[in-house]
């Protein structure tokens, strides 16, 4: 004797065994299955064939799980990008305020030192980093371009300091860490852009 409820429970177990999680996702798929079974039965199919048809229409569990995994991976990637944006935002903001304090507050106020030009350039880079961090955190694609440029400048600056034997060991190690993080940022944002291609808006002149 065909038992529809038992067969649906079996189908659900198979989906779960294939790795489709969480239960809410299975509930949604089961709802879809039941809707289709109901519709097929209304059109004259018997329960067994209706269930077979509905299960076939939903498709096999493995490709479905793979597709869900891909969707989850994309959202995980977006979350990581936000964390990265926050790190850059915080880092550049702290660096900007630190250099500002050094330039204007320490050693008796503002003085034109030989490092002034470097400091001013660094400040612009930090500000660009803050801007890139904010844009990226808000989800603007332009943020990735700004931050990749800033990260590249960081890599160059850090590399120059790592090879400067006049600097202390601790500072050079810090430069290696920052340079490494910048390289990671460039690589990660490149991967992120490749994984989330964007359709370009139409050029109205052609319409």
């Amino acid at each position: 004797m065909f038992d529809l409820e038992q067969r649906i429970a079996e189908w659900r177990r198979q989906m779960q065994a294939a790795g489709i999680q969480p239960p809410a996702r299975l509930d949604e798929l089961e709802g879809h299955l039941r809707d289709d079974v109901q519709l097929q039965m209304k059109s004259g199919m018997d329960q067994e064939r209706a269930l077979e048809h509905a299960a076939a229409m939903i498709g096999r569990a493995e490709p479905l799980r793979a597709e869900f995994d891909r969707a989850t991976h994309a959202s995980g990637l977006r979350m990581m990008v936000r964390v990265l944006a926050l790190l850059w935002l915080a880092g550049c903001l702290v660096s900007f305020t630190t250099v500002c304090r050094e330039m204007f507050l320490s050693s008796g106020g503002f003085r034109a030192t030989p490092f002034l030009l470097f400091n001013v350039i660094a400040q612009f880079i930090y500000l660009a980093g803050v801007l890139g961090g904010v844009l990226l955190f808000l989800g603007a694609r332009s943020g990735t371009y700004v931050l990749r440029t800033v990260a590249l400048l960081f890599v160059i600056a850090c590399a120059a300091q790592v090879f400067d034997s006049g600097l202390g060991f601790g500072w050079r190690m810090w430069c290696i860490a920052v340079g490494g993080f910048s390289l990671f940022t460039i690589y990660f944002l490149h991967k992120f852009l490749a994984a989330t291609p964007k359709l370009r808006p139409p050029r109205k002149a052609y319409v």
């Binding site: 996702r25 949604e28 798929l29 879809h32 289709d36 229409m57 939903i58 498709g59 490709p63 479905l64 597709e67 869900f68 891909r70 969707a71």
Partner: peptide, 8 residues
């Protein structure tokens, strides 16, 4: 394939 709608 009906199931593929849900990941989308």
């Amino acid at each position: 394939t009906d199931g593929m709608l849900y990941p989308v």
